[in-house]
Simulated scan of single mutants.
Amino acid sequence: MSTATRKSPLTDWTVLVPVVALVALVFSWGRELPSLGVALVALCLAGAVLAAVHHAEVVAHRVGEPFGSLVLAVAVTVIEVALIVTLMLDGGDKTASLARDTVFAAVMITCNGIVGLSLFVGALRNRVAVFNPEGSGAALATVATLATLSLVLPTFTTSKPGPEFSTAQLTFAAVASLALYGLFIAVQTVRHRSYFLPVESAGPTGAAGADGDGDHEAERPTPRAALISVGLLLVALVAVVGDAKSVSPTIEKGVAEAGLPNAVVGVIIA
């Protein structure tokens, strides 16, 4: 492609969307928005989330696996926690269970929807879905244990009424969760790093993938591109938090007017 027709990186949607979302935040902050304004800010919010994940993937590709997965996990966690905290601050007592509802929805969507769809698409493309059983098993065991500790056990405790931990129980759950996740990170990045590296996928013809095109063959981003993505990732995350605060009253009002339970807000975030 000639220089004259080459697309400028500055006009790429992953660059423009975070900037536009940040501008939308400036103009919407502290104001009561009309319906059209809420729709525009919500659109900017969705675009900022997608842009943030894109730039996190660029950084992840630069640092390589398994550290790239940690970058993606941190970016997505920041987005989700920011949305939860923003909605909880504005929602009062009725959003007390929002964090639990969101985490439960995220676990269900990930383990049943995303994993199932990945296996299905992988089998369609390559006849056999290839994955690393050791790494996948360790990740699934960690998620299942953390979900049981934080989502299931509060239902059976009796120190406080309702599905709620006492202060001592909450402290234990927090320390145990941090210890377990720290152990998983050590296994992923040091002890058994090979368990979490991409597996070469062989298609029916023996080539990488059904079409000979694998993700591992993608060109590695340059240090300059990775630094730019880090900056744009931070811009996108700021825009996500701010825009979420601007549209959160409308989300909660819409769920209430539709007669849906508050847990639906958690599903929307997830």
Results as ranks from 00 to 15, higher is better:
residue 1 M to S: 12
residue 3 T to V: 10
residue 5 T to E: 13
residue 6 R to A: 14
residue 7 K to D: 12
residue 12 D to Q: 07
residue 13 W to V: 12
residue 21 A to H: 05
residue 22 L to I: 07
residue 28 S to R: 00
residue 31 R to P: 08
residue 33 L to Q: 04
residue 38 V to K: 04
residue 43 L to H: 06
residue 45 L to S: 05
residue 47 G to N: 03
residue 47 G to Q: 02
residue 52 A to I: 00
residue 56 A to D: 00
residue 57 E to S: 15
residue 58 V to E: 03
residue 59 V to A: 04
residue 61 H to D: 12
residue 71 V to L: 06
residue 74 V to L: 05
residue 75 A to C: 06
residue 76 V to G: 07
residue 77 T to Y: 15
residue 80 E to S: 08
residue 83 L to K: 14
residue 85 V to N: 05
residue 87 L to V: 10
residue 88 M to R: 05
residue 90 D to S: 13
residue 99 A to E: 07
residue 101 D to N: 10
residue 106 A to C: 08
residue 107 V to E: 07
residue 109 I to S: 10
residue 113 G to M: 03
residue 113 G to P: 00
residue 114 I to W: 14
residue 115 V to W: 10
residue 115 V to G: 11
residue 116 G to Q: 03
residue 117 L to P: 08
residue 117 L to Q: 08
residue 120 F to P: 06
residue 121 V to L: 09
residue 125 R to C: 09
residue 126 N to V: 01
residue 127 R to T: 11
residue 128 V to I: 15
residue 131 F to Q: 09
residue 137 G to T: 06
residue 140 L to M: 08
residue 145 T to L: 10
residue 147 A to C: 07
residue 147 A to I: 14
residue 152 V to N: 11
residue 155 T to E: 15
residue 158 T to W: 12
residue 161 P to M: 04
residue 162 G to I: 02
residue 164 E to D: 15
residue 165 F to P: 00
residue 165 F to T: 02
residue 172 F to Q: 08
residue 176 A to R: 02
residue 176 A to M: 04
residue 177 S to M: 06
residue 177 S to N: 08
residue 178 L to A: 12
residue 184 F to A: 07
residue 187 V to F: 14
residue 188 Q to R: 10
residue 190 V to D: 12
residue 192 H to K: 09
residue 194 S to V: 10
residue 194 S to I: 13
residue 195 Y to H: 11
residue 196 F to V: 01
residue 200 E to L: 11
residue 200 E to M: 12
residue 202 A to C: 14
residue 203 G to S: 04
residue 204 P to H: 03
residue 207 A to Q: 15
residue 217 E to F: 11
residue 218 A to E: 15
residue 218 A to Y: 09
residue 223 P to N: 03
residue 225 A to T: 09
residue 228 I to S: 11
residue 230 V to A: 13
residue 230 V to Y: 10
residue 233 L to V: 00
residue 234 L to W: 07
residue 237 L to Q: 02
residue 239 A to R: 00
residue 241 V to Q: 09
residue 245 K to C: 12
residue 253 K to V: 15
residue 255 V to W: 07
residue 255 V to G: 05
residue 261 P to E: 01
residue 262 N to E: 13
residue 264 V to A: 03
residue 266 G to C: 04
residue 270 A to Y: 03
